[in-house]
Nucleic acid binder design. Structure first.
Lengths: 211, 211
DNA sequence: CAAGCGGGTGATTTCGCAATCACCCGCTTG
DNA sequence: CAAGCGGGTGATTGCGAAATCACCCGCTTG
């Protein structure tokens, strides 16, 4: 069996050596090299071309996020797992945006780490359960942001009326505007929500909970 | 030890029964009830108040996403794990937005399912590695979308010049505008990126790769 | 101390979008 | 067939953001 070739990057020599012996006990892994900071890591990855890089964030000289960006710039398909103690939201999101395939905490069990590396090697991504919740929150926020800015205030009001099953003339009466104006608002709503009729608009609005 | 109380929702009776016997073999779980569609699931969850709900997406009468929304509306803190074969992006994102704490595929190993339920019960979130990559892609897209719309075209041009280390007067010459205009653009860039000086702006721009 | 640079404030024009209304078309239904 | 409704096109006004420039302040440096 071809071994999964790794590079370890962490500024704590003790942790790095412990991790090294741990991984070498697992027959499917082969550690090609180690680095104690980002500046050393970039050329090391360049020259050894490992399957997966295990990368710490908090490091002197060049931190893990900068190193990640540099590595991914040189080798865009390089798989990198962030292995860190940081549960900081900015670190997490930055690492994802910079192209990390995994983000796991240092308190992870050896077996889980083994599983993570195998999954990443197979082309999948893995997050520690503790940080997954943060990522899901970020997704929720970004989706609601996207929905918020989409429609103007007035258009949302019209949409609410539509959802109550009101007709054009009823909406016009309720909002003290002409039927023509209501129709124009609905037109814009349909365009922005990329739907073809009132019913579809109401269905998607209910689904997105933007009422 | 207090058992983790579950409710299973899946329209395939065979799968549901198999899952039931599997979970009952694990001493830490207790299955309070089952449902074959979303319409039955909502009142069942309401009455039994389980710790965690395992919910399929593809179901007749009321699909899992609608059921998830209904359940979370009645019991906002209810923990729900989507257990499905769907790797569809829309299903995945919809489930997350609707408040799912987990999204795992039906080909998951029993031990991994056991682990997932325990993590969700503990307040964390879990995704199957196969879908984690999709979520990370969604995060990347939403972050770049956020960055795109943030700065105007002209402001991006100025920022590019800044990143090359050009001074105010050099930028003014390059873009055929006055120094004052350049300064105003930079002012707006600093405001929008929430940074305090040019260097910070360049650093974050490089990090976000919006050059 | 004066020139150059980074940074802050005010003022202008222009352009796009929001909000409004009028008018037109095609379908159903009594 | 005419009245009502959903849907489409054009036109107006007003506000806010983008883009432009002028002027002011404080620091460094020769």
């Amino acid at each position: 069996m071809t071994k999964i070739r790794l590079v370890l990057v962490d500024d704590h020599a003790l942790f790095r050596r412990g991790l090294l012996s741990l991984l070498e006990e697992m027959p499917e892994f082969e550690v090609l090299g180690e680095a104690g900071n980002g500046k050393d890591a970039v050329p090391l990855v360049e020259s050894t071309a490992p399957d997966v890089v295990l990368l710490d964030i908090n490091m002197p000289v060049m931190d893990g996020l900068q190193a990640l960006a540099a590595i991914r710039k040189q080798r865009p398909s390089q798989k990198v797992i962030m292995l860190t103690i940081s549960q900081n939201d900015d670190d997490l999101i930055s690492a994802i945006v910079a192209g990390a395939s995994g983000y796991i905490l240092k308190n992870t069990e050896p077996e889980a780490l083994r599983h993570t590396i195998a999954q990443v090697f197979a082309g999948n991504s893995v997050l520690s359960p503790e940080v997954t919740a943060k990522v899901l929150q970020a997704v929720r926020r970004s989706q609601s942001d996207k929905s918020r800015g989409l429609l103007s205030e007035r258009e949302v009001e019209v949409l609410k009326c539509l959802a109550r099953g009101q007709t054009t003339s009823q909406i016009a009466g309720a909002l003290f505007i002409s039927e023509n104006t209501v129709k124009t608002h609905i037109r814009h709503i349909l365009e922005k929500m990329e739907v073809n009729n009132r019913a579809e608009a109401v269905a998607r609005a209910a689904q997105l909970e933007l009422l």
